[in-house]
Simulated scan of single mutants.
Amino acid sequence: MKTKKLNIAFFGSSLVSAYWNGAATYYRGIVRALNERGHRVTFYEPDAYDRQQNRDMEDPEWAKVVVYEATEEAVYKCLEQAAEADMVVKASGVGVFDELLEREVLKLQTDDRLVVFWDVDAPATLDRVHHNPQDPFLPLIPQYDMILTYGGGDPVINAYEALGAKKCVPIYNALDTATHFPVEPNERFACDLAFLGNRLPDREARVEEFFLKPAAATPDKKFIIGGSGWGDKHMSENVTYIGHVYTNDHNAFNCTPKAVLNISRESMARYGFSPATRVFEAAGAGACIITDYWEGIDFFFEPEKEILVAKSGAEVASILAELTEERATAIGEAAYRKVLAAHTYNHRAEQLEKLLYAKVEQQDEALA
Rank of each mutant, 00 (worst) to 15 (best):
L100K: 13
K2A: 04
L34Y: 02
V115N: 00
P219M: 06
E350I: 06
Y150S: 02
S228Y: 08
G229V: 05
G93H: 05
R51A: 08
S264E: 13
R40P: 01
N54E: 07
K107C: 12
Q363E: 13
G284I: 04
V66T: 11
A349P: 08
V116C: 03
L323Q: 13
D86W: 11
K311L: 05
A321T: 15
V129W: 00
G332V: 12
E184D: 14
N238P: 11
F43R: 03
V16M: 07
R37A: 06
A24T: 14
H234S: 07
K64E: 15
C255D: 02
A122P: 02
H347D: 14
A70G: 05
Q109K: 15
V16W: 01
E45L: 07
A24V: 12
A341V: 07
E353F: 01
N248Q: 13
Q362E: 15
A24F: 00
H39C: 09
W230Y: 08
T71A: 13
Q81G: 08
A334G: 09
K64M: 13
E333K: 15
Y336E: 04
I307F: 08
A122H: 00
E350G: 05
I225H: 04
D112R: 14
E102K: 00
E302K: 15
V239E: 08
P185H: 04
S17K: 02
V67P: 10
L175N: 05
L6K: 11
K166V: 12
I30C: 00
Q109I: 07
T291G: 04
T277W: 06
N186M: 02
A48F: 14
A282M: 08
F117T: 07
P142I: 05
F137A: 04
A341L: 12
V88W: 00
Q53E: 15
V316T: 09
A310G: 13
F43I: 01
V120Y: 02
L340G: 09
E72N: 13
E326G: 08
M146A: 13
L148G: 01
Y144L: 10
G12D: 03
F195D: 12
W62N: 02
F43K: 02
D154T: 14
V339F: 02
K233D: 04
R51D: 10
F43P: 00
I147P: 00
I171N: 00
G95T: 11
N248M: 09
S14H: 05
M57A: 10
